[in-house]
Amino acid sequence: MQAIKNDVEIKGAYKQFGSNVVLNGINLDVKQGELLTLLGPSGCGKTTTLNLIAGFLEADEGDVYIKGKKVTKVPPYKRDLGMVFQTYSLFPHMTVYENLDFGLKLRKVEKSEKEKKIARALELVKMSGLENRYPRELSGGQRQRVAIARALVVEPELLLLDEPLSNLDAKLRHELRTEIKRLQKEIGVTTIFVTHDQEEALSMSDRVVVMNAGKIEQISTPTSIYNHPDTEFVFNFIGKSNCFEGKIASVESRKISVQVDHDIAHVDVKNIMGSDKACHAGDEVKLYIRPEKIHISSVQETSTSREFHKAKITQLNYLGTSWEVDVLLLGKPLQILTPAFDSSWQPGSEVYVGWNPSDLMLIKK
Rank of each mutant, 00 (worst) to 15 (best):
L28A: 03
L28E: 09
D29V: 11
D29Y: 03
V30T: 09
K31F: 02
E34C: 04
E34A: 02
E34L: 04
L35I: 15
L36G: 08
T37H: 05
L39T: 10
L39G: 05
L39P: 09
P41T: 08
G43K: 00
C44T: 04
G45L: 07
N51I: 06
N51W: 06
L52M: 15
L52D: 07
A54T: 08
A54M: 08
G55Y: 13
F56E: 13
E58N: 10
E58G: 04
E58W: 03
E58C: 03
A59F: 15
D63I: 14
V64R: 01
V64N: 00
Y65F: 15
I66P: 00
K67A: 10
G68V: 12
G68R: 01
K69G: 00
P75F: 01
Y77K: 11
K78Q: 12
K78N: 13
K78M: 09
R79G: 02
D80N: 14
L81H: 10
G82E: 12
G82Q: 05
V84K: 00
F85P: 10
Q86F: 06
Y88M: 11
Y88P: 11
F91T: 07
P92T: 13
H93P: 08
M94Y: 15
V96A: 08
Y97M: 07
Y97L: 09
E98C: 02
E98H: 02
N99E: 10
F102M: 11
